[in-house]
Design a binder for these strands. Structure first.
Length: 349
DNA sequence: AAGCCGGGGTA
DNA sequence: TACCCAGGCTT
């Protein structure tokens, strides 16, 4: 039996029941694919359910404010996906008359849709014979065919795409594509794959040669940069309690683009209160502080894939009103990074 | 070709 | 800790 036939048989026996498997509406499939980029099914599923509930159609999504889209996306990470999602929805409405593109080539023109996503949508929704190559597919093919070309090298990307096209089942592409990914996620896992009861075990090169734990090969890891964040939380309080604070929107390049955060003082090392009581003025130019208190004595370490953020939160109490005051009761309306959301939750305002 | 961009789960 | 997750975009 061929590789693809075994994958298909395995899939029909083992596929999970997932919300986006109930439909072939390209809008819904696209939504699921963007959400699942570099994201586990378990983490992405609640977001998929919320997005499809709030935005039933691509036009609903296109007509929303980016702020609302980012708020719904809050906590998922890689926020360019959300910004591109919104932009692509507008493209579908403005450039494709509200009708979702129905082939690989046109899908590629959408912001945030690359080779993988265009292949997934076109095959799942329109039965177009395009082979998907995601992290699961790299792993399954590298092991089964014993390929040690680095999967993230230019050569590897081309090689595995060609190999994937060679071994795919064009006639059953919809199930085959989902099947090989599901197989990688459930059976041929990164660590401790279930080789003992694997339907491909009698012809898997990596298993035969004892290379299962060495494949796939991936080029180097990204080095992590340390950064030191001091969030200055302006606090205007009256007899009723804390009334106002301030949030700024992150603009330009870098992390968390278009999300909101408290006024930020970045430093070259962890700061002590003496340094903050002097330097806070550079950030809060218009605010006269009555008192500065540290919220967390030990810096919180927030870990991104490529940066470690050593973060202290400083409470800056003032007796005067100031510019850009935000009523604290509205603070949850803003899309914020998890680091900020965690503080808001802990501080309780 | 290499770097950038999150947050969380797993062993 | 280190690695990975239904990747794509920018430089």
């Amino acid at each position: 039996m061929s590789f693809s036939s075994k994958i298909l048989d395995w899939y029909h026996e083992n596929k999970r029941s997932l919300p986006w498997r109930e439909t072939i509406d390209p809008y819904k499939i696209w939504l699921s694919e963007i959400i699942l980029q570099q994201t586990r099914v378990a983490q992405g599923t609640p977001y998929y359910l919320r997005f499809t509930e709030v935005f039933s159609t691509v036009a609903d999504l296109a007509n929303a404010d980016e702020e609302q889209v980012l708020k719904l996306w809050q906590g998922l990470g890689y926020y360019s996906r959300a910004r591109n999602l919104h932009a692509a929805a507008k493209m579908v409405v403005d450039e494709y008359g509200g009708e979702f593109p129905d082939n690989y080539k046109k899908l590629l023109t959408l912001k945030g849709v690359g080779d993988y996503t265009a292949s997934a949508i076109s095959s799942i929704c329109f039965n177009e014979p395009q082979a998907v190559v995601d992290g699961n597919v790299y792993r399954v093919l590298a092991r089964y065919y014993g390929v040690d070309i680095p999967i993230n090298s230019t050569e590897g990307i081309k090689y595995f795409k060609t190999l994937a096209e060679k071994v795919m089942d064009e006639k059953a592409i919809r199930d085959y594509n989902q099947g090989i990914m599901e197989f990688g996620a459930i059976q041929c896992t990164p660590k401790k794959p279930l080789c003992l009861l694997c339907p491909l075990s009698d012809s898997c090169v990596a298993l035969e040669k004892g290379l299962v734990n060495d494949l796939p090969v991936k080029l180097k890891k990204t080095k992590v940069r340390n950064r030191y964040f001091n969030y200055l939380i302006p606090i205007y309080k009256d007899a009723e309690g804390i009334q106002f604070t301030r949030l700024n929107q992150r603009i330009g390049k870098g992390i968390w683009q278009n999300l909101w955060e408290f006024p930020l003082l970045e430093s070259k090392d962890v700061l002590k209160i003496e340094e903050v009581t002097i330097k806070y003025k550079e950030v809060l130019k218009d605010i006269k502080s009555r008192e500065v208190l540290v919220f967390n004595d030990n810096a919180v370490v927030h870990k991104l894939s490529h940066q470690h953020l050593y973060t202290k939160f400083w409470l800056v109490y003032t007796n005067d009103t100031f510019n850009d005051m935000i009523p604290v009761r509205e603070i949850t309306h803003f899309p914020v990074p998890v680091l900020i959301a965690d503080f808001i939750k802990a501080f309780k305002f």
